[in-house]
Simulated assay, not measured.
Amino acid sequence: MNSELDHLAAAAAPFARFTGYDPVEGRRRIAARIEARRAAASRQTAPACRQIQHQAECELRNLATRVINHIAAPAQLDGLVNSRDVDPIGGLVFAALLYLSGHPRNAQFWFEFAAGSGDSTASFSLYLHHASVGELREAEHWLEQTTQLANQSDGGVPPRPSIPPVHAYMFDTQWHGQNIADDTSDLPRPDLQLRKTVDHLRIVLEDEQLGSFVLPTSEVAEQLHDLVCP
């Protein structure tokens, strides 16, 4: 933008002595007007962006809460710990637990693990996660992935069962996607004891490509069972 203004100012210079126009001062005024318009546009869009991010965060918390409170969730998480055949839904449950315990980065790893195995709830969770931190390009990618998983034809490989099923979400035009309308305030979320256990999970550094991540334990699975299945 500055180079364009410099070009215009230079072009106007030969005429300045006839019109009394000061190219340097004119450039300064134009730049000030552009900056004022940018600032006004930013003030108008910033609240809307913050509202969208806040809405995405709330909806992801609601979704994660419903995931860990599913009747099969403790068993799915235990299967992730003790089974040789890793169940992607166990990864979804663990991701939801990590997110609700204040570990969104670790949760993202396990959401991606479950989504990569064809779980549409995990894919939708990644959409909400990226939207909540303003990463809209990544959010759009995961929304497209969610749509593909939910609309797979009978001739293809069907998506793994989702908890809760994606078709239960309501469509919201503001999101150009789906959101969660159910109130989860009456459902339990990780208590202090469970959060402390999650805080002390062992960190694994697999390689440079995967980076670091945490692994679930039998203690976490047992405490989740005690929390949601009293």
Rank of each mutant, 00 (worst) to 15 (best):
F18P: 01
G20W: 01
G20K: 11
G20L: 05
G20P: 02
Y21I: 13
D22Q: 08
D22Y: 01
D22I: 00
P23K: 11
V24P: 04
V24R: 15
E25Q: 15
E25T: 10
E25N: 10
E25V: 08
R27W: 06
R28A: 15
R28E: 15
R28F: 13
R29H: 09
R29C: 11
R29K: 15
R29V: 11
A31I: 09
A31N: 15
A32I: 05
R33D: 04
R33Q: 09
R33N: 03
I34P: 08
I34C: 10
E35R: 11
R37L: 11
R37F: 03
R37A: 14
R37V: 10
R38I: 02
R38G: 01
A39W: 01
A39L: 10
A40L: 08
A41R: 14
S42M: 12
S42G: 05
S42Q: 12
R43W: 02
R43S: 07
Q44A: 14
T45D: 12
A46W: 07
A46Q: 15
P47C: 05
P47Q: 08
P47S: 09
A48L: 12
A48W: 11
C49F: 13
R50A: 13
R50W: 13
R50K: 13
Q51L: 14
Q51R: 15
I52D: 09
I52C: 10
I52A: 12
I52N: 08
Q53N: 09
Q53R: 13
Q53Y: 04
H54W: 12
Q55V: 08
Q55L: 13
A56F: 00
A56S: 08
A56Y: 00
E57G: 05
E57I: 02
E57P: 00
C58W: 07
C58H: 10
C58V: 13
E59H: 04
E59M: 03
L60P: 00
R61Q: 07
N62R: 13
L63W: 00
L63M: 04
A64F: 04
A64N: 07
A64G: 03
T65S: 07
T65P: 00
